[in-house]
Design a protein around this nucleic acid. Structure first.
Length: 275
DNA sequence: CCCGGAACCTGAAGGC
DNA sequence: TGCCTTCAGGTTCCGG
């Protein structure tokens, strides 16, 4: 499941291959990948030069002239490949470039999208802060969380509150910060928010260093696997002993999302709803 | 505004 | 063995 570290890893891999090149062809083997705008809308990108490859949250952005952009979102099972896959591929789209490079959009479940934006500004502005940027501080996170009474786990998954965090890294950050996933966001005091802020940045930075977590279908554009999942403490580890205290890790549903945590290290606070 | 739930999608896993 | 149901989760949309 590609989250910020996985998309950032992909960005770094493809950037040197396509920056400065011209998009020579956009081929949609599965037209539904273009979303409601329809496959024709993507033809507007043909002929444009890739000025930069950016990441914003979980969005991968090929920045074109005039603040236009081609935006790829991998959703659950999407992957970007720079070469023909060895086996079991579900290639939904192929972007070809003037320098001979090809980007293959592989996606088993067909939830991923590719879109052309005439102006990137609306997308960039509606997303929350980048958790690894300097303007994302413990104070700004506290200010944002204080406006929501939803469970902190749900708040971390809200892309308007912080961009790029998904189910795995939300659970890992909450474990490091010793916060129960059901705790109402606005009830976290400054010290606990500061712990969470630090944990979020730690978890995401470490995962980028490990080139992402290859659970499910995620792989690098050259087919290699990331290793971040080997460092996980709680994600997808129901029943295994907590690495800190040894207690069996539990899994609960928070807003329909499987949430892994240690019942001892992350006890429900007195004000935790639904505990 | 705030919040919960459905829908999208397909392969794996579990029940009978 | 095999059919059927449920689950996985990022995002958007809809309704109370």
């Amino acid at each position: 499941m590609p989250e910020l570290p996985e998309v950032e890893t992909i960005r770094r891999a493809i950037e040197p291959c396509i920056v400065g090149a011209r998009i020579s062809d956009v081929s949609l083997l599965d037209p539904s990948i273009a979303g409601p705008e329809g496959p024709e809308s993507l033809q507007a990108a043909v002929g444009a030069t890739v000025r930069a490859v950016l990441r914003r949250g979980k969005h991968l952005i090929l920045l074109l002239n005039g603040n236009r952009g081609v935006v790829l979102h991998l959703r659950m099972t999407g992957a970007i490949l720079l070469q023909e896959p060895a086996t079991k591929a579900r290639v939904r789209a192929v972007l070809s470039f003037s320098n001979g490079e090809k980007l293959l959009f592989n996606d088993m479940r067909r939830l991923g999208t590719i879109r052309h934006y005439q102006d990137m500004k609306p997308l960039l502005q509606r997303l929350g802060p980048e958790p690894l940027d300097e303007d994302f501080t413990a104070d700004s996170l506290k200010e944002s969380l204080s406006r929501h009474r939803i469970p902190i786990k749900a708040a971390l998954l809200d892309q308007h509150i912080v961009a790029g965090v998904g189910n795995m890294y939300a659970d890992e950050a909450l474990f490091l910060a010793r916060i129960h996933p059901m705790t109402p966001a606005r009830n976290l005091d400054i010290p606990r928010v500061a712990s969470l802020w630090k944990a979020l940045r730690q978890v995401l930075t470490d995962a980028i260093g490990s080139k992402g977590a290859s659970v499910s279908t995620y792989a690098l554009p050259n087919g290699e696997h990331g290793t971040a999942h080997f460092g996980f403490n709680v994600a997808h580890k129901k029943g295994e002993p907590c690495p800190r205290c040894g207690m069996a890790l539990q899994r609960v549903m928070v807003r329909k999302r499987g949430s892994y945590y240690c019942p001892t290290c992350q006890p429900p606070s007195g004000d935790t709803a639904g505990g």
